[in-house]
Amino acid sequence: MVKRPRMSAMRRKEAITGYLFIMPWLLGFILFTAGPMLFSLYASFTNYDVTSRFDWVGLENYRRLLFDDPFFWLSLKNTAYYAVFAVPLGIATGLIIAVLLNQQVPGQRVFRTIFFLPKVLTGVAVLLLWLWVFNPNFGPINVFLRFLGVENPPLWFSDPNWSKPALIIMSMWGAAGGYIIYLAGLQGIPKHLYEAAAIDGASPFRQFLAITVPMMSPTIFFKLIVGFSGAMQFWESVLIVSEGGQGGPSYSTLFYGLYMWQEAFGRYRMGYASAMAWILLLITLAFTVIQLNLSKRWVHYEGDSR
């Protein structure tokens, strides 16, 4: 190995300055991310419950979660249910809006503002609004359904079978702003592809299937996988929309994060909840690995098509 030359004085000064500039991030990383995570990993192997006990229990927390805790699996199932519907439907919403906007319709600016609004309208206020919109008796949705002749419209957040669909509808509303990324992708598709297809007599629908969909698929897959990973962390809204924030009715909105929150800050089983956190981290990691592997291939494909 070649010995590295000693840094010149100027280089060294720049290095010190560099570390000073990134110090806020570096300290924050050590104090608020890396340190806490190591602590949390350790805590996940103990029965830590804030008061005093900090006994090493080995893999007991993980064993109990995986083999002895029906609520763990129920919360995972609820979260997966939400993800499986909310993510593709959200992508479809954004994609459809992008395709429509790409038709050079008049009023682009107004439409863009409207579709973006849900991205801004978040927080407790909007969740309360949804509770009111889904109100079984007086909410406009059920009034409309009765008007259409539905005799017993869903009770939404009061019905275990309809609470998750209600949340999925809410998520689709929020996903409208996602059009922005698909529109950028659509506009990146070379025009000559469509022109060639039109000359060959392909209908717009056929062009959409044969050109738009394949050209957009990298973006769609990326959003799908990143979306799944994000949806695994969906739970905060349930604190507001479920009765008492308990994940009801009949545990139908007990999402993974909510169960972890209850274990950690309701029952103060911090060790147990830390184990849940690490299982979530592993799930997220798995999605990230899949995404990185696939994205390598997409870059390759795109290079070929040029």
Binding site: G18, G257, A277, T288
Partner: peptide, 28 residues
């Protein structure tokens, strides 16, 4: 600025964006 370890630390920074907030919430 150029300093030793910069690119490695930047990769660490990118990696931390993947960590769910719920993981650090309890120890914090």
């Amino acid at each position: 600025l150029r300093f030793p370890g910069r690119d490695f630390l930047f990769v660490v920074l990118l990696a931390t964006m993947m960590i769910p907030g719920m993981v650090t919430m309890i120890p914090q």
